[in-house]
Amino acid sequence: MPNYHNFIRLMKQVAFIGLFFVQVGCSSFKGTELAYEKIPTSSLDKTIEYGVYTPPNWVKTERLPLVLFLHGARDDHNTLEQYKTHRYFDQQINAGQLPRFILVTPNGGKGFWENWYDGSHNYRDWVMQDILPKVQKDYNTLDCPEHCSLMAISMGGFGALRMASIYKNSFSSLSAISTPVLSNENKQDAKVPLLVRLFFPLKRIFGPKLYNGDESQSIRSVWSDKNNVALQKIRLQLIWGDKDQPNIIRTNQRFHELLQKNGREHEYFIYDGGHKWVDWQPNFNRVINFLLK
């Protein structure tokens, strides 16, 4: 009989411990913080995923500016939640350090946000023709271009500078963070790091040469062109780290100097850090305030 009671007591203890860990697991688990959706693309028989950040206590009757965020090569549409950037935005907004805004972050894979040379992916058109109009409608955002901005890191910065130069009447401001400003003008500037060349289908994306070999269509050329009136209207911010990747430091410095030489107004800032999220996120206050001022 004592053995039976001991057995029952042991089972109760095991059940209690199990319930405790279940409760701890449930209480520490936080559900999806961004709204995630998947939509078909109009240009090809594919779907594309994206996440949407809304500020604390947002309701649909509140009309807010829209920020389009283009992620880097190692990221996707879940990255803001992964690095708790949404929490950073919440804290900054609640503290009065940031204005209220809505942010959409599509999944661009490793495609440089380009319409691929081989025709298999049209990331730029998917974002501009499919995702952006849907988010504007679903979230009742303020009108573009006046209240639409581009924010991007690394590979995304290249895509953002290209996207705005092609859809030049769609945005009022752009911030490119730690961006490789690739160019055919200079062999060093056209050089893509070895790991990128190994793991990215660059020839499928760009073809034999960047910009189809037409340097007049390069990021450097179009953004510094005084006669490109529509693009000149977009407020531009360049940010990179003093310990960033060598090609990013070099190409951004050269791009900045060319913009200065041609009288193209822009803001630039060099932060203390490298090419990581831990370096980028502390600068997002500066970025959002620049975009939405």
Results as ranks from 00 to 15, higher is better:
residue 237 Q to F: 04
residue 238 L to Y: 02
residue 113 W to C: 02
residue 159 G to H: 07
residue 97 Q to V: 01
residue 141 T to M: 03
residue 247 N to I: 02
residue 214 D to K: 14
residue 124 R to H: 11
residue 11 M to G: 02
residue 143 D to M: 06
residue 250 R to A: 05
residue 217 Q to A: 09
residue 235 R to P: 01
residue 232 Q to K: 12
residue 276 K to C: 03
residue 275 H to L: 08
residue 241 G to R: 00
residue 226 K to S: 11
residue 142 L to H: 11
residue 203 K to D: 13
residue 140 N to S: 10
residue 186 N to Y: 13
residue 43 S to Y: 10
residue 217 Q to W: 04
residue 240 W to H: 09
residue 175 S to G: 10
residue 120 S to F: 03
residue 52 V to C: 04
residue 156 G to C: 02
residue 85 T to Q: 09
residue 284 F to A: 11
residue 157 G to W: 03
residue 106 P to Q: 13
residue 200 F to M: 04
residue 34 L to S: 04
residue 139 Y to V: 02
residue 19 L to D: 06
residue 172 S to E: 15
residue 145 P to A: 07
residue 131 I to S: 10
residue 100 R to G: 03
residue 63 R to K: 12
residue 16 F to P: 02
residue 102 I to S: 12
residue 166 I to S: 08
residue 22 V to R: 04
residue 172 S to V: 00
residue 90 D to T: 14
residue 256 H to C: 01
residue 25 G to K: 02
residue 203 K to Q: 01
residue 64 L to Q: 09
residue 104 V to M: 15
residue 208 P to I: 03
residue 72 G to R: 12
residue 87 R to A: 12
residue 290 F to N: 00
residue 145 P to E: 11
residue 154 S to D: 00
residue 113 W to A: 04
residue 197 R to L: 14
residue 193 P to M: 12
residue 57 N to W: 10
residue 111 G to D: 07
residue 179 T to Q: 08
residue 148 C to P: 03
residue 185 E to G: 04
residue 116 W to A: 10
residue 112 F to W: 15
residue 123 Y to V: 02
residue 196 V to P: 00
residue 213 G to M: 15
residue 31 G to S: 04
residue 269 F to G: 06
residue 122 N to V: 05
residue 270 I to F: 07
residue 124 R to N: 09
residue 207 G to D: 07
residue 215 E to S: 14
residue 168 K to Q: 08
residue 170 S to L: 01
residue 237 Q to K: 00
residue 222 V to E: 09
residue 293 K to A: 00
residue 194 L to I: 12
residue 164 A to N: 01
residue 5 H to P: 00
residue 7 F to V: 00
residue 232 Q to W: 04
residue 43 S to A: 08
residue 99 P to M: 04
residue 221 S to L: 03
residue 235 R to D: 04
residue 178 S to A: 05
residue 178 S to N: 06
residue 18 G to Q: 01
residue 82 Q to D: 15
residue 130 D to R: 11
residue 122 N to M: 05
residue 212 N to D: 14
residue 292 L to W: 00
residue 95 A to D: 13
residue 208 P to W: 05
residue 261 K to I: 08
residue 288 I to Q: 01
residue 158 F to R: 09
residue 199 F to S: 14
residue 178 S to M: 10
residue 106 P to N: 11
residue 209 K to H: 04
residue 263 G to T: 11
residue 87 R to C: 03
residue 75 D to G: 13
residue 87 R to N: 02
residue 28 S to I: 03
residue 277 W to M: 06
residue 247 N to Y: 15
residue 83 Y to R: 07
residue 281 Q to W: 13
residue 239 I to C: 11
residue 142 L to V: 05
residue 55 P to L: 06
residue 153 I to D: 08
residue 143 D to F: 02
residue 135 V to P: 00
residue 197 R to P: 05
residue 62 E to G: 08
residue 51 G to L: 05
residue 242 D to A: 01
residue 68 L to P: 12
residue 288 I to M: 14
residue 218 S to N: 10
residue 250 R to Y: 07
residue 13 Q to R: 00
residue 53 Y to P: 08
residue 240 W to Q: 06
residue 45 D to G: 06
residue 47 T to F: 12
residue 284 F to C: 10
residue 172 S to H: 12
residue 147 H to Y: 13
residue 165 S to H: 01
residue 43 S to G: 08
residue 163 M to Q: 13
residue 96 G to D: 09
residue 248 I to R: 07
residue 254 R to W: 08
residue 234 I to E: 02
residue 110 K to W: 12
residue 105 T to L: 03
residue 117 Y to D: 07
residue 204 R to I: 05
residue 244 D to W: 10
residue 265 E to A: 14
residue 30 K to W: 15
residue 7 F to L: 00
residue 48 I to S: 07
residue 150 L to K: 10
residue 36 Y to F: 14
